[in-house]
Every structure is written in structure tokens, then in C-alpha cells.
């Protein structure tokens, strides 16, 4: 069976991803656009993520040891390039919401010894908790360092009664020793996609949002289905001239703001950031 499968679908098995029009016939490819000019750094997305995805609060000591579990973090940079050139941050701070980039060629995927992380049909970088043995190779290989390991058995510690009543039953509470990461709120997508399938349609644009995109007060995070060319996210990608399957984007015009972080590492992320703007005349 397997051998005949191997021979029959040889072409598919030998296809190297990502390739152009990879999602042409697929119903879904989830992607995001984050506008850094409207991100105000308010942390609403972070807390929303804690609430939606049963993230453990680790406490001061463990946070200090670098064992925090925030799937999305707001980074705040100063200055330009190597150092701050002025005494004061004259152009404000630089906020960067950093979450799993759901890379199309994710460096974490090929190195997982047990295949706990792989690429799903709708273009997500999955993490199957109960398959994970905790080798942490994925985290070692992730250039963005957005994978978080359960260093402690948080279920025992992080939700004293009755805090555990808040836990989302659609999301597993991860035990010690497994890796976890942003899932683009898979449980929401799953429920939405199932409902849509029952109705015999595909999800409408904006019908399902990730927790961060839904909370974001400035709507800096746009989430949607890149395979649906009419969706807002697809239009934005197109307008920003970012091609999913390219690692060097050809921009035909000046002033187009879309870029992907660490694109030069050939990770093909699914998140496009829009450059922050500053009125340098002010």
C-alpha cells in the first residue's frame, strides 16, 4: 500500500516547498499583516493570547530565568541599527509584536526528531503536544526564538483553584517537557472551518480571527486567508508586493512598506510587517 502510494504520488512527494501558487487550489492559507505604524505597543494582544491559549503565568523568578511562556511578545527597540545615536529616543520607541511567523520553510520543522512539528495543509506550522518528546531542537533552530518550552509542570502551579475554570477547553494545557508556540488560534480556525464545511462553503473574510487580531485596539493586526484572493490580507500582501514563495521581493515602487522579518534566512514567513512611519520633518 505504502509502496504503491509512494510510486503513484511520486511527483507530490518530491515537490520542494514553498513553490509558486502552492495554495492556488487550497481553500485556506492563513497569513497575517502587522502594521507597525499603528501598533501602539499596548499589550492587549499579549493578554488576549494568555486568555485564549491557556498560557501559563510563570512568576517573577522564572520569568527572570528566561522561562516565560508568551506566544506573542511586544519587543521594544531603541535607535537605529547598532546603537542609539541620540541621547533621547527622538522618534519614539520601536514596537514589534513578535509571534510565530508560521514560516513556509520553517527551520523548526525538518529538525524535529519525532515529527511533532510539521506543515499543515492550510499553511500553518503545527505543534502536536502529545507527540513532542522535548528535544528542543526546534527552538534551537528557530531564528525568531518564538517557541516556548514547558520547563516546569505549569498545570500544577499556574492555575490555583478556581483560576483553572477560565481555561479554554479547546486548547490542551501543556504538561512539562513539551514545546509550545503560537498556533494562529487553531481552535478558532478549526471550529470555523468545520462549520463552514458543514455549510458547504469556505470561511468568509474576517469570520474567524486570532485572539490577538480580534483584541488589537488599533487593528494593527490583520489576519485572514491568503488563498482567498479577495480577502483583506491577500489584497494587502499584493499591494505590499510580498510574494509568499520568494525570499527576495521585487518592489516596483518606492514607499511600499511590506517586509518579512529575517527573510534572508529563507524561512518564507507568513507574516508581513509594514514598516513603521515617522514624519522626519516634525
Amino acid at each position: 500500500m505504502s509502496l504503491s502510494n509512494l510510486i503513484q504520488n511520486w511527483q507530490m512527494f518530491r515537490t520542494r516547498r514553498p513553490y509558486e501558487d502552492q495554495y492556488k487550489d487550497a481553500p485556506y492559507k492563513w497569513a497575517m499583516v502587522i502594521d507597525l505604524d499603528t501598533c501602539i505597543g499596548c499589550n492587549a494582544c499579549t493578554v488576549a493570547c494568555y486568555a485564549e491559549n491557556n498560557l501559563a503565568v510563570v512568576g517573577k523568578e522564572r520569568f527572570g530565568k528566561g522561562q516565560a511562556m508568551h506566544w506573542i511578545r511586544i519587543e521594544r527597540y531603541w535607535g537605529e541599527g547598532e546603537e542609539m545615536k541620540t541621547d533621547f529616543p527622538e522618534r519614539g520607541a520601536q514596537y514589534l509584536p513578535m509571534l510565530c511567523q508560521q514560516c513556509e520553510a520553517a527551520p523548526c520543522e525538518p529538525v524535529c526528531p519525532v515529527g511533532a512539528t510539521h506543515h499543515s495543509a492550510d499553511g500553518l506550522n503545527t505543534q502536536v503536544y502529545n507527540r513532542c518528546v522535548g528535544s528542543r531542537y526546534c527552538s534551537a533552530n528557530c531564528p525568531y526564538k518564538v517557541r516556548y518550552f514547558n520547563w516546569w509542570n505549569y498545570p500544577e502551579r499556574a492555575w490555583p483553584n478556581p483560576l483553572e475554570l477560565q481555561l479554554n477547553p479547546d486548547v490542551t494545557v501543556r504538561s512539562k517537557g513539551v514545546m509550545e508556540k503560537c498556533t494562529f488560534c487553531m481552535q478558532r480556525l478549526r471550529a470555523g472551518m468545520d462549520k463552514a464545511k458543514t455549510d458547504g462553503r469556505i470561511l468568509a473574510d474576517g469570520e474567524v480571527l486570532t485572539a490577538c487580531a480580534q483584541a488589537c485596539p488599533t487593528s494593527a493586526i490583520t489576519f485572514g486567508n491568503l488563498a482567498d484572493k479577495k480577502s483583506k490580507v491577500a489584497r494587502m500582501w499584493k499591494k505590499q508586493q510580498v510574494d509568499l514563495a520568494k525570499n527576495v521581493q521585487d518592489k516596483t515602487e518606492e514607499g511600499i512598506r511590506g517586509y518579512r522579518v529575517l527573510e534572508e534566512l529563507n524561512t518564507y514567513p507568513s507574516i508581513v510587517y509594514l514598516e513603521r512611519l515617522r514624519n522626519f520633518a516634525a
Binding site: 529538525v111 510539521h118 518528546v133 513539551v178
Partner: peptide
Amino acid sequence: HLGRVWQFYYVVAYPNERWVWPNFTSPL
């Protein structure tokens, strides 16, 4: 060094009921 040492056998290629194999592309 494994987080879940009790599941270490997932790394070994053995025929199993779940039909899930280790990831043969992983250096580990």
C-alpha cells in the same frame, strides 16, 4: 536532555499502531 524522557522511544523507528514514524530528516 529530553523534556519527556518517558516518551524517548518516539525517536526510534519502530512499526507502531499509530502509524506515525519519526522524522527521518532530523539530525537527531
